[in-house]
C-alpha cells in the first residue's frame, strides 16, 4: 500500500513537471504526427498500401515516441541534481520506478489516442473491433513504459545517452511492435480472435519488464 502511495507521489511529480514544461505535448506529440505524415510521403500516399501497413506504421511511431518520452523522464532527474534528492528521499527504488513508469504510461496513452485518431483519419482505415485494440494498446503501454523507464535510467548518467538509449531500447521493444501491430491489424480487419493471443503476449511483456524494473531500479539509482 505504501509502495503505491509513494509511486503516486512520484508520478504526480513527473506529471506536474510535464504539465508545466509541456515537452510531451509540444515536442514529442508533434514529432509523432510528423513521422506519420513522413511515412505517407515515403509510401507515395498510395491509399491501399497505407491502409494495409497502417498498424505497423502507427506502432513504429509509438516506439520512437516512447523512447523520447522515456529519455525525457530520466532527464528531469539529472537537472539540478534532482537524482540526489530522490536518493535522499528515503523512497523505495521500486516505488520510484513504478511512479516514473506510470507517468510515462499516462503520457503514452495520450500520445496513442491522438496519433491513433490521426492514423485512422490520414491512412483511411476503419476501426471494426475496438476492444482488442484498446486492451492491446493499454498492455503495450505498460511494457513500453516499464522497459523505457528502466533503460532510460540505465543510460541516464552517460555522456552519450541520447544515442545509446535508442540502440539499447528499440531491439528490446521488438515484441511490443509485433504484438501491437498484430492486435491492431485484427482490430482494423474485424477479426478480434486473431488479436487476443497477441494481447496476451503484450501483457506478459509488461509483466516481465515491470518486475525487472521493480527489482533493478533501486540499484541503478544508488550508483555514482
Amino acid at each position: 500500500m505504501r509502495l503505491l502511495r509513494e509511486a503516486a507521489v512520484i508520478a504526480g511529480k513527473d506529471l506536474r513537471i510535464e504539465a508545466r514544461s509541456r515537452v510531451t505535448t509540444n515536442q514529442v506529440l508533434p514529432f509523432g504526427g510528423l513521422v506519420i505524415v513522413l511515412f505517407a510521403m515515403a509510401l507515395d500516399a498510395d491509399r491501399p498500401t497505407l491502409t494495409r501497413v497502417a498498424p505497423g506504421l502507427f506502432w513504429v511511431t509509438i516506439l520512437l515516441a516512447a523512447s523520447l518520452a522515456a529519455a525525457r523522464s530520466a532527464a528531469v532527474e539529472i537537472e539540478n541534481g534532482a537524482a540526489d534528492g530522490l536518493r535522499m528521499s528515503s523512497l523505495d527504488g521500486a516505488s520510484i520506478f513504478l511512479g516514473k513508469a506510470a507517468a510515462v504510461a499516462v503520457q503514452l496513452v495520450g500520445l496513442e489516442l491522438v496519433l491513433g485518431v490521426a492514423v485512422v483519419a490520414l491512412y483511411d482505415v476503419e476501426v471494426r473491433s475496438s476492444p482488442v485494440m484498446i486492451v492491446g494498446a493499454l498492455c503495450a503501454t505498460v511494457g513500453l513504459a516499464a522497459a523505457g523507464t528502466l533503460f532510460a535510467a540505465l543510460a541516464s548518467g552517460l555522456r552519450a545517452r541520447e544515442t545509446v538509449l535508442p540502440l539499447l531500447l528499440l531491439p528490446v521493444l521488438a515484441p511490443v511492435l509485433l504484438g501491437g501491430t498484430r492486435a491492431w491489424e485484427a482490430g482494423f480487419e474485424g477479426t478480434p480472435s486473431d488479436g487476443w493471443p497477441w494481447v496476451q503476449l503484450l501483457a506478459l511483456f509488461g509483466l516481465v519488464y515491470g518486475s525487472l524494473g521493480v527489482l533493478a531500479y533501486g540499484s541503478l539509482l544508488e550508483e555514482s
Partner: peptide
C-alpha cells in the same frame, strides 16, 4: 558503476531473447 549498469543491461537483454523468439515464431 559501469559494471553494474552493464550487468543489469545484459540480464535484461537475456530475458528479452526468449520473448523475441517466441513472438517472432508466432509471426
Amino acid at each position: 558503476v559501469r559494471a553494474r549498469r552493464s550487468a543489469i543491461a545484459a540480464l535484461v537483454a537475456v530475458v528479452d531473447v526468449p520473448i523475441v523468439h517466441f513472438s517472432v515464431s508466432w509471426w
